[in-house]
């Protein structure tokens, strides 16, 4: 097979081993994200998806292996410097600041922006994306509904004008309508901003529909990778993840 054209790599993860204490969770994981690409990461509960995202964002550190971003090694760079260079995580379980208002949460999202004059523009973009957040600006984030919280979390992540967003279980615990709304928003963001997305999703349909390339993580090993369309037809994946 020939590659259609040379893809510009944004993020390259190579041979990651990682875990907590003595328990090894990731085994030689490698993965690449090209500029402007949406990559899906599939896997059952406890496969190590969140762990991998945390390592990419710098919250956890790997035992061995390397991470390159825009051609530079960032394996040992602090989280806040990674955020500054454009990597933003939309964490599992929203992880808002419950005692701060929606507006304060969003503004903290742009904490790492060097050019603060961009903040109003970013804020407008988020309010345009989720008008409800504009109405709820003064409400404490901890009192938002689940769907609103997820919008706030996504909005907060976008406030840093990222180049790469790591989206962890966007659909978790949300009603189908809410999921649809947020997915539409994510697609819109992708269309209007030049960014790349790594999507972790339990909803395999959704994950494969959103992404162009996908990886399957099973108990810490990448067991399959390829174009999402092909993976959607893969009998084994259909059997174990789609239940068909």
């Amino acid at each position: 097979m020939t590659e259609p054209r040379e893809k510009l790599e944004l993020l390259t993860v190579r041979d990651l081993d990682a875990g907590y204490g003595d328990a090894q969770i990731l085994w030689g994981v490698s993965l690449g994200i090209a500029q402007g690409e949406i990559v899906g990461l599939l896997g059952g509960n406890g496969a190590g998806k969140t762990t991998l995202l945390n390592i990419i964002s710098g919250l956890n550190s790997p035992k061995t292996g390397s991470i390159h971003y825009l051609g530079e090694e960032i394996t040992h760079v602090n989280t806040y410097n990674r955020v500054r260079s454009g990597i933003t995580q939309i964490p599992e379980g929203r992880q808002l600041f419950p005692g701060l208002t929606v507006r304060q949460n969003l503004l903290l999202g742009s904490f790492s922006l060097a050019d603060k004059s961009r903040v109003p523009e970013e804020l407008d973009f988020v309010f345009d994306l989720f008008p409800i957040l504009s109405e709820r600006q003064k409400q404490l984030a901890g009192t938002l509904s689940g769907g609103e919280q997820q919008m706030c979390a996504l909005g907060r992540g976008l406030m840093s004008n990222p180049k790469l967003i790591l989206v962890d279980e966007l659909s978790l615990g949300l009603a189908p309508v809410a999921v649809e709304r947020i997915v539409e928003a994510l697609k819109k963001v992708y269309r209007e901003k030049s960014l790349s997305i790594l999507v972790v999703e339990q909803d395999v349909h959704l994950c494969l529909e959103l992404s162009t390339t996908a990886y399957v993580l099973e108990t810490g090993h990448i067991v399959k990778q390829g174009p999402s369309e092909e993976l959607a037809k893969d009998p084994q994946i259909r059997k174990s993840y789609l239940g068909i």
């Binding site: 710098g58 806040y80 955020v83 992880q95 808002l96 005692g99």
Partner: peptide
């Protein structure tokens, strides 16, 4: 913003790191 960052660090350490604090 600095004050909010201080509150943020208290309320959710990981999220504070995620936003670049």
């Amino acid at each position: 913003q600095t004050g909010n960052a201080i509150h943020a660090s208290a309320q959710n350490k990981r999220a504070a790191q995620i936003v670049g604090i």
